[in-house]
């Protein structure tokens, strides 16, 4: 979790590409993932993402993200296999449950799309300084400063939230909550913990908003309007 979506400083060619162009490339790769039906093309796109990660000198981090995405999508994969029943049965289980070649193909495609679409966004955001992105959104795309700021602030909050969540999990583990069970059990235990997290996040966001207001945030809002 640590360091996810957090800017990693560097001097690679990808760091120097204008932020908007980077975002555009990432979105293009996402779009490609969703428009193709070929597993080979999807695989190629994922490999491309990883290569981009290595060019940006965050190869190891990219592989780590890929790894956790794989874990997550394997759950979806298993669920999907049983839902799709068209095609030729490869394995037939009791109660009429069958695993088909079409089901296998479809599940693989869903998972690879998920990975292929998430990865470029995380890679690009890790290689982009958020204020640069805000500035370009305002200057080039003429997005009102307020919205651009809100957008980048939201992204900036993700690692903070992730860190808070990790701390909550740690504290609950310390008092005896066992979180290494299956996915459903984990979800049931973690959901109530999200409430205090939400409360503290709202406090944080409010403090941030006041801090921005007291440093003239609204002045720029006016000028842009």
């Amino acid at each position: 979790m640590k360091g996810m979506l957090q800017y990693v400083h560097g001097n690679t060619i990808l760091h120097k590409v204008p932020p908007l162009l980077k975002l555009l490339i990432a979105i293009a790769i996402c779009a490609a993932c969703f428009s193709t039906r070929s597993l080979l093309v999807l695989l190629a796109l994922i490999v491309l993402d990883v290569i981009l990660g290595f060019i940006g000198n965050i190869g190891r981090q990219t592989l780590r993200t890929l790894c956790s995405l794989c874990k997550f999508s394997s759950i979806i994969f298993v669920l999907q296999i049983f839902f799709v029943t068209q095609g030729n049965a490869l394995v037939t289980l009791p109660l009429g449950v069958r695993i088909t070649d079409e089901g296998l193909r479809f599940s693989a495609m869903i998972c690879m799309r998920l990975i292929g679409a998430t990865l470029p966004l995380t890679v690009m955001l890790t290689l982009t300084r958020l204020p640069d992105l805000t500035r370009q959104l305002v200057k080039v795309l003429h997005v009102p400063y307020k919205y651009a700021f809100a957008f980048t602030t939201a992204i900036r909050f993700i690692p903070i939230l992730a860190r808070d969540m990790a701390a909550v999990i740690e504290a609950q583990t310390a008092r005896g909550v066992e979180l290494d069970g299956n996915f459903i059990k984990k979800l049931r235990l973690l959901l109530p913990l999200c409430v205090p997290l939400l409360v503290s996040s709202i406090r944080k966001i409010e403090a941030g908003a006041i801090s921005a207001e007291l440093r003239g945030f609204h002045l720029r809002g006016k000028k842009a309007a």
Partner: peptide, 21 residues
Amino acid sequence: RTSALARKVGFLFQNPDRQLC
């Protein structure tokens, strides 16, 4: 296991909000 230790060891975190749920 950490949960086995939790029966014998109490840990008060600096930020109480991490614990309360």
